[in-house]
Amino acid sequence: MIGFFDRRWRGFRVVNLVGWGLLAAMILGVYLAKTMAWGERNQIASVEIQIRQEKLRIRLLEAEVAHLEQPRRLEALSAGALGMAPIGPKQEIALDDLHRFERQKPIPAPTLAEPPVFAQADVGAPGVAAKIAVAGPVTAQFAAPQVTQQ
């Protein structure tokens, strides 16, 4: 142990050289670490600012959506532009009750002079015509809803 402390290299104590070397490595390490950390920190800060701005934009958009979807505004638009009104009991139906409604009038005949090519091909397939007849147009099914009161 004593030998190590007394050992010299070109007049310099080895222990001193090792110490200086370690110090230099530590300084360099700290410098590199801090430089990299500074870069990372900047990047994080930049991302965080971006997140904050995005959140702010989301807030603005949410507020704008809420403003545009004001119930009174929608009511005025739907009543004024579309002539709509709150639905009545006879216009409501629960999903479970859909099966109660049979088609109440025959499917109107196609008004097209010539049916589309794909329709011809479909109808020609076995069993397809029957399925189409059962399904019927949506408007026909809901022409005179009976509600659930029975």
Binding site: A63, E64, A66, H67, Q70, P71, R72
Partner: peptide, 8 residues
Amino acid sequence: RVYPLGNT
């Protein structure tokens, strides 16, 4: 403070 629903 903003109240987007107005009078509602």
